[in-house]
Design a protein around this nucleic acid. Structure first.
Length: 346
DNA sequence: AACTCAATCAACCGCCAGGTA
DNA sequence: CTACCTGGCGGTTGATTGAGT
């Protein structure tokens, strides 16, 4: 049985609303409230579907809406929140009184995205674009065969490939770029209970900032499918290991961190396998991530992890440690505390 | 003035989650 | 448990506007 349409569309008007229609809708809702939206157009004398009325009211006619361009602080908050939670426009809008999700979404797509790109920041990952290129140079997607190999070959000059592959140069943005990057956050102080739970940490992993600095130290391991224990968990003070199953064309990735200023990381080489397989096989990346992330987000998650870690490392008084698979972030840093608090409220 | 192109944003669409019968 | 309804969400479309030639 197919899905029923939201309303009977025969004879209903579509397209831009007229002033007269607006007036009818405002009069009705201010007098009676909207109640059931399906009934609103009938009772208000409008040839519109209820859904159209609801959208017109919430996005345009509501009396508490702000008009005009978003302020600089609103824009900054949108960027911070987007870095933390992605395209959850309604959640973001909830933090900006008088603004609608549609408005923020449009603003993001038409202005902020462009602005970030001009600043050399990827609007999806919030990582510096040249760092993403570096990630790709160091570890292009593993090809299936020679033909695929050619397809995936990054468009680099041979001398650049050699340079990027040199162990000394397997690092993130150069020092000059780091120095020129803007301050990481406008977030102000709030309180948070620490340590964070794993799922809260997962949210923070998606926090990326223009100041993220990642030093790359990639390596790939072959892990037997029967060897499900994650060696890196033991060897690295803070690591997550994407387990490898050669039979399933899965490749290990390791992310490890320290407090010395350099962050060693390597994004995952992930091929199309269902999350359930990972859940079964992976102790570390099992439950919390499967709850929090969609399969397609894993690479983004990994990128976000890198960037978030880099960002947090730069904040004052921040410390990362790992105990029994949980990520503990202990910090008196007001920026981090306020961000975590905002995330908690969502 | 006429035309093209890009930017903007209101509105639409399909999907999903939660509630209810 | 299932089917259905409703409200809400995020992606996309397309009409309008303005800048450039």
């Amino acid at each position: 049985m197919g899905r029923q349409p939201c309303c009977d569309k025969v004879g209903l008007k579509k397209g831009p609303w007229t002033a007269e229609e607006d007036r009818k809708l405002v009069n009705f809702i201010t007098t009676h409230g909207h109640g059931c939206w399906r009934e609103v157009p009938k009772l208000a004398g409008l040839l519109r579907c209820g859904k159209s009325c609801r959208l017109r009211w919430t996005n345009y006619l509501r009396p508490d809406l702000k008009r005009g361009l978003l302020s600089e602080s609103e824009e900054k908050l949108i960027i911070d929140l987007h870095a933390a939670i992605g395209n959850r426009w309604s959640r973001i809008a909830a933090q900006l009184p008088g603004r609608t999700d549609n408005e923020i979404k449009n603003y993001w797509n038409t202005r902020i995205k462009k602005k970030l790109r001009q600043m050399g920041i990827d609007p999806v990952t919030h990582k510096p674009l040249n760092q993403m290129q570096m990630d790709y140079m160091i570890r292009p997607p593993a090809p299936m065969n020679a033909e695929e190999n050619n397809k995936f070959e990054p468009p680099l000059k041979p001398e650049n490939v050699a340079e990027a592959s040199s162990p000394e140069n397997i690092r993130g943005p150069d020092e000059e770029m780091r120095m020129n990057m803007p301050a990481c956050s406008s977030l102000e102080s709030l309180e948070i209970d620490l340590p964070l739970r794993m799922e809260d940490s997962m949210k923070l992993f998606n926090v990326c900032s223009p100041t993220s600095v990642i030093s790359l130290s990639g390596r790939t391991e072959e892990v037997d499918s029967d060897d499900s224990n994650i060696v890196d968990q033991v060897n690295n003070p803070l690591s997550d290991s994407h387990k490898n199953n050669a039979n399933n064309n899965m490749t290990t990735s390791c992310c490890s961190f320290n407090n010395g200023g350099n962050i060693h990381s390597r994004s995952s080489d992930i091929k199309a396998e269902p999350p359930s397989l990972w859940d079964d096989q992976m102790g570390v990346l099992g439950d919390p991530i499967s709850d929090y992330l969609q399969w397609n987000d894993l690479e983004l998650w990994s990128a976000g992890l890198d960037a978030a870690s880099g960002w947090i490392q730069q904040l004052p008084e921040c410390h990362w440690s790992e105990m029994q698979g949980d990520i503990e972030i202990s910090s008196n840093c007001p920026e981090l505390q306020r961000l975590a608090s905002i995330l908690d409220e969502m």
